[in-house]
Simulated scan of single mutants.
Amino acid sequence: MIRAIDFHKAYESTVAVAGLSFAVLPGQVFGLVGPNGAGKTTTLRALSGLVPATRGRLEIAGLDVEQHPIAIKQQTAYVPDDPQLFDDLTVGQHMDFFASVYRVADAETKTHQLLQTFDLIEKVDQRANALSRGMRQKLAVCCGYLYSPQAILLDEPMTGLDPPGIRNLLESVRQRAADGAAIMISSHLLAMIESVCTHVLVLDRGRSKFCGPIDTFKSQFESAGAPASLEQAFFAATSGELSAGASL
């Protein structure tokens, strides 16, 4: 559903991503982790069609991202870490707008369910510029979920969320994956990644350090016969103890 083949992205003389290849199948949840500047946001923005690849190929549902921009957007939801909403529109108007653009069937029912799940029902008539940081994040997720995309890209989605919001978001990720969506989540919260993701893609300075099942990644750093935590494995991988590009 989501695929990168020898993906490179450079900004003038700065290489953000170099030779990245991976595939996310329906039902999988990929955690995208790495230090600041590792290329995580660049990768998600390129997959969503917001920035072009310098070299290589990116695909969503078998379609080339650059050659089929409209079809890609119909299949993909991208929620950035600082979503840009329409400040003068209310919560309900945002949902109506997305329902119209994506021609969502039974939009009223789906809107109600999403706003209820993310505790935004009471804010339906409130403008976006009056919402808290966490509520804006929730609204962006609701807008992204409304048209049932098959590829979901979440960049630091926990920013500003309270504990109930985090719990609801993680449960929604599990449910969307169970329904067949392919999901990528970028986050520095390794405990969260470990709790919800089936696979992990570890980036360091634009290069893949590991790509594969999260349990396999942890098992490579056993201590006294027990797999390491994701945090332990992450620090070992990014400190050079795991060869670049390892994949299982």
Rank of each mutant, 00 (worst) to 15 (best):
I121G: 08
V15S: 07
D125I: 06
R205Y: 09
R127H: 12
A233L: 08
R57K: 13
I5E: 12
A226H: 12
S229N: 09
G240W: 09
L85Y: 08
R45W: 03
G27Q: 05
L50P: 01
A226T: 15
S219P: 03
R205S: 12
G206E: 03
G160M: 06
G27W: 04
R3N: 05
P164T: 04
Q126W: 04
C142Y: 00
D125F: 04
L50G: 06
E194Q: 13
K40T: 04
D96S: 14
D125S: 12
R55T: 07
A191N: 13
L190I: 12
V29K: 01
I121T: 15
A105L: 12
L115K: 00
K209Q: 13
F210W: 11
P35R: 11
F7C: 03
M192H: 08
T90G: 13
L114A: 10
V200P: 00
H199W: 03
G206A: 08
K209F: 09
A182E: 05
D215Y: 06
I60M: 06
Q113M: 12
E222A: 14
A16P: 00
A244E: 11
I2S: 00
E59Q: 14
Q67E: 12
V200Q: 02
S132V: 05
T43P: 03
R103P: 00
H8R: 11
A130V: 05
L50V: 10
K110C: 05
A99H: 06
K218G: 00
L32I: 11
F217R: 05
R136S: 03
I72W: 00
S100P: 01
D82T: 14
T159S: 14
G62P: 09
G19W: 04
Q74K: 15
G34D: 01
A140T: 09
F234Y: 15
V15Y: 00
L58D: 02
P80G: 10
R174K: 15
A236L: 08
E66P: 05
C143I: 05
A237S: 09
V196L: 13
K218E: 00
L201Y: 09
R207T: 15
F235G: 03
Q175H: 11
G37D: 08
G144I: 06
M95C: 11
K138V: 07
Y78W: 13
L203Y: 04
A61N: 14
V24T: 02
L50I: 14
T216L: 11
A228D: 04
Q93F: 02
K73E: 07
N168R: 11
A4R: 01
F221E: 07
L44Y: 01
K40P: 01
D125Q: 13
P80Y: 04
G19M: 04
P35W: 08
V24D: 02
F118Q: 00
Q175S: 10
E122P: 02
S219H: 12
P26K: 07
D87K: 15
